[in-house]
Amino acid sequence: MATCDRCGAQESMPYQCRLCGGTYCSAHRLPENHDCPGLDSWGDPDGVFDSGFDDSVDNPGGSQGSFADRISIDTGRGGVLAYFRGNFTYLFLGLMWVTFLLQFVVAPALGVGAFTRDWYALFTVTTSNPLYVWTWLTSVFSHGGFTHILLNSIVLYFFGPVVEQRIGSKKFAALFVAAGVLAGLAQVGASLLMNPSWWGQPLNPALNVGSAVLGASGAIASLLGVLTVLNPNLRIYLYFIIPMPLWIATALFAGYSILVSSAGGIGAGGVAQIAHLAGLGLGLAYGAKLKREGERAPRQLQFGGGRGPGGPGGPGRRR
């Protein structure tokens, strides 16, 4: 006997949804009958279901319509933007690497050397200028070095699609960006609370003055939090080798950040520990909200991770 994920009924011959993988009774087997999150990420980028009749219905006279109509972007199931439906994980991965090239190739070629004052003002949230609003977003996709972006990319590659499939692309994108921004601001805010004089002062790493934050780890930690709440016993393979339930990996990650920040400060080791914890906390809270609304995560998943969200990176405080 199996239990319907929607109504809890016992079903001797259960149905498994091909979109979300859930188990359902006959009354709730169709995706539209169990509010399947897979419907939100379903797309038809090849236009298989676009017969072309829509144009004739809207324009029975056969004319081509206005110029604006002819150049408008189709955001429907078969439109150009359908390629982004269900693929925001890879879009964000692409933005990370494009930003990385801007940081270390394009900017230096234009005279903005890496780790200079102007470079920090473009790509990091700093205690010097925390109200540079554009950096709230650019810092999420910026990284301090190749190892930093590589490890974050590995973790996002494995965690991202799972969360996106479960909650839909719109919620996934909102969570990733919001958690990334708030995690960076939390780190800078904590630094300023401890060192109010840093506000407006130029960064001076040699004298340990000021703090700069960059990286996607806060955003990725929020994905970890969501999955932990939805399915704490999800089996993962840490470093692709060590099997463990997800809740243990999350507890180790949080415990490490708390221990290191308690012993060496909130930016110990050049890593933004507060940003990690803020992102994780936001993810746990959002996961709890989804669980109250009846959201579920896959029962089984096997993947490896890097060093966990927030591997080593560049200058200042890395996420």
Rank of each mutant, 00 (worst) to 15 (best):
I274D: 07
V226W: 02
E295F: 11
G281D: 14
S191R: 10
L284W: 05
V260C: 02
V177K: 02
L301E: 14
A186C: 14
L185V: 12
S217R: 02
G287D: 12
G279R: 08
G304P: 08
G270S: 07
P298F: 00
L227T: 04
S257I: 07
K289V: 14
L182G: 03
M244D: 11
I258V: 15
G210Q: 03
L224R: 05
S262F: 15
V229A: 03
L280V: 08
A179N: 07
F176H: 01
I220P: 05
I258L: 15
K289G: 08
L223C: 01
L259G: 08
A249G: 12
W247R: 09
M194A: 15
L207D: 15
G270K: 10
Y237N: 12
L277F: 02
G184M: 04
S261G: 09
V271L: 12
W247S: 05
L282R: 03
E295M: 07
W198R: 04
L207W: 13
W198N: 05
V181A: 10
P243E: 13
V181H: 02
N233P: 01
G279C: 12
P205V: 00
R299A: 11
A221R: 00
L175Q: 03
V181F: 09
L238A: 12
F253C: 03
G255R: 05
W199D: 10
L238V: 13
L224S: 09
G200N: 07
L246A: 04
N208L: 12
L227Q: 03
A178F: 14
A183I: 10
A221Y: 11
Q201L: 15
I274C: 07
A297N: 00
A288H: 09
G270T: 10
L259P: 04
P202H: 09
L252K: 08
W247H: 09
L282P: 00
A206Y: 13
G210H: 03
L185S: 06
I241T: 15
F240T: 07
V177A: 06
P232K: 02
I266Q: 05
V226C: 00
A212C: 02
V209G: 05
I242W: 15
L223I: 07
V181Q: 08
N233M: 06
L193R: 03
S257N: 14
R235V: 10
N195D: 06
P298N: 02
S217Q: 05
A272E: 10
I248A: 13
L214P: 12
A275R: 00
S217D: 11
F303V: 03
L252E: 12
Y237V: 04
A212E: 00
F240L: 08
L224F: 12
S257H: 15
A212Q: 00
R296P: 01
A263H: 12
I220T: 11
N195A: 06
A288M: 14
A178V: 15
L252S: 13
L259W: 14
A251E: 02
R292H: 11
H276L: 11
P232S: 08
P202Y: 06
S262A: 14
L175Y: 03
A206K: 02
P298I: 01
A216D: 14
I220C: 07
A251C: 08
M244K: 03
S262W: 15
A278K: 04
